[in-house]
């Protein structure tokens, strides 16, 4: 149990997927102008990461990894070079599926979350999460916890940035620094703040 708590703290704070690995920056910079939209996108990223991480773990372990086809008596086949293209296809398919399920069962949630779901298919943090779990050789449970933690970290970071940018409207920022310039500098400061969790031992 402790192992998983420390894994989740690490994914949320110390190795935040956005602030330490720079994944999902494009949508982060574009969407963090508005607080409402940030909450919607943050929730959608967390949700999709939590389900794609275990799915891709299954696909990798039982279909395309080194020696994964042992159950089909083909132990010498190694399809791991297909990893990027298979993962992106799985992610796109999962996003489509989630979109249809939400549309069918919760139209209210679909109203809020729906427009963000297609955006997520090409969000680097989702593909990044799946690639990291292969590289770090996580187990199924670890992958799920890591996916959820990474999503939560991304969610926290985008909400923090959206709120800072909301307050920023009343500040006198140099003309040429407005927009992306000041946002990058602020992200740097936010990143320092998250790194200060680094010393915590659990």
């Amino acid at each position: 149990m402790e192992h998983y708590i420390s894994l989740i703290t690490k994914a949320v704070f110390i190795e935040n997927i956005l602030l330490a690995y720079f994944l999902g920056m494009c949508s982060f910079l574009a969407i963090s102008k508005k607080v409402d939209a940030s909450i919607g996108l943050g929730l959608a990223v967390t949700f999709v990461l939590t389900i794609t991480a275990p799915t891709n773990w299954f696909i990798y372990t039982f279909l395309i990894g080194d020696g994964a086809l042992e159950w089909a008596n083909l132990p010498e086949i190694n399809l791991s070079f297909l990893k990027p293209i298979v993962f992106i296809a799985v992610i796109a398919a999962m996003v489509q599926l989630v979109e249809m399920v939400i549309d069918r069962f919760s139209p209210a949630l679909y109203q809020n979350l729906g427009i963000f779901l297609p955006l997520i298919a090409v969000n680097c943090s989702i593909l990044g999460g799946s690639l990291f779990l292969v590289e770090r050789e996580y187990t199924l449970l670890e992958s799920t916890v890591f996916g959820f933690g990474s999503g939560l970290g991304w969610f926290l970071a985008i909400i923090a940035m959206a709120s800072i940018r909301y307050r920023l409207r009343y500040s006198n920022v140099p003309l040429k620094l407005r927009g992306i310039g000041i946002t990058m500098l602020l992200t740097g400061l936010l990143s320092i703040a998250f790194m200060s969790f680094g010393g915590i031992q659990l």
Binding site: I180, G181, G188, L189, S191
Partner: peptide, 28 residues
Amino acid sequence: LMVLSPGAFIILGLIVWAQRIIGKVEEE
């Protein structure tokens, strides 16, 4: 600090700033 991730954000922010001053780009 430069080796850690915040360094990249701060350097990129400054480069963007410098480029906008030289390139005379207007932000809406």
